[in-house]
Computed example of a mutant assay.
Amino acid sequence: MIKTDIIHPDLLQALAQCGHKANILIADANYSFLTNTFPKARIIWLNFTPGMIGSVIILEKILGYINMEKATLMASPAEFNNTIEREYRGILSKEIEFEYVERNTFYSLAKSSDTILVIASGETRRFANILLTVAPTLI
């Protein structure tokens, strides 16, 4: 019996295959998973119903398995109250670089061959998509 925080077999296998500089996209419930990701990226469907499973809990659990060096977010309008971005910052270590890019640049990054894993969440908040870059493992 597996005794870890993540018991989803496909997700565990996909995480094990993520090497240094690979990108992992945690996408919100409104994201176009098939048209705005690399065609060969593996999609793990965790979006059972709106609001379940949220991207914050997915991020928390993934960080228990993989070191990240960078987080890329789609830039939101200045007047937008981006609550999820604050939650992401609270979870990610201060050493992780944060980058904000405009919408089309974000989609281009998600479509690159570096994006090998896409996790479809049930997150319903706007601007919740986060592209994570895997850091080298320190031995």
Rank of each mutant, 00 (worst) to 15 (best):
F33D: 14
F106L: 13
L117D: 13
A41D: 05
R89E: 07
I53Q: 02
L34S: 12
P50G: 02
T115K: 10
I58M: 04
Y65V: 08
A71G: 15
I44W: 09
F48N: 09
I84R: 09
L11T: 06
K70A: 07
E60L: 11
N81P: 00
A110G: 11
P136H: 06
L34Q: 12
A27W: 13
T37R: 06
N36D: 14
M68G: 00
I2T: 13
P77C: 04
E99M: 04
L138A: 08
L131N: 00
A14K: 03
E123Q: 10
E97M: 01
P77D: 07
A110T: 08
I116D: 14
I130Y: 05
G54W: 05
G19F: 08
N47P: 03
K40Q: 15
E102Q: 15
K94D: 11
A16C: 03
P77V: 02
A128T: 06
S76Q: 04
A29D: 02
S76K: 00
L15V: 14
T35P: 02
N30K: 04
T124A: 03
I43P: 02
L25Q: 05
A22T: 11
A14F: 03
A41Q: 11
T133D: 12
I96W: 13
I84C: 05
S55W: 00
Y88R: 04
V56D: 11
R125Y: 08
A29Q: 09
L138Q: 11
I6N: 05
A75Q: 14
N67R: 10
E85C: 01
S93P: 01
H20P: 07
H8Y: 07
F33T: 10
E102D: 15
D28I: 00
I139A: 12
E79G: 08
T72H: 02
W45A: 14
S93V: 14
F48G: 10
V134T: 08
L132S: 08
A14S: 12
G19A: 07
T37P: 11
L138V: 10
P50C: 08
K94G: 07
L46F: 07
F38G: 05
L11N: 01
R89C: 04
N67H: 15
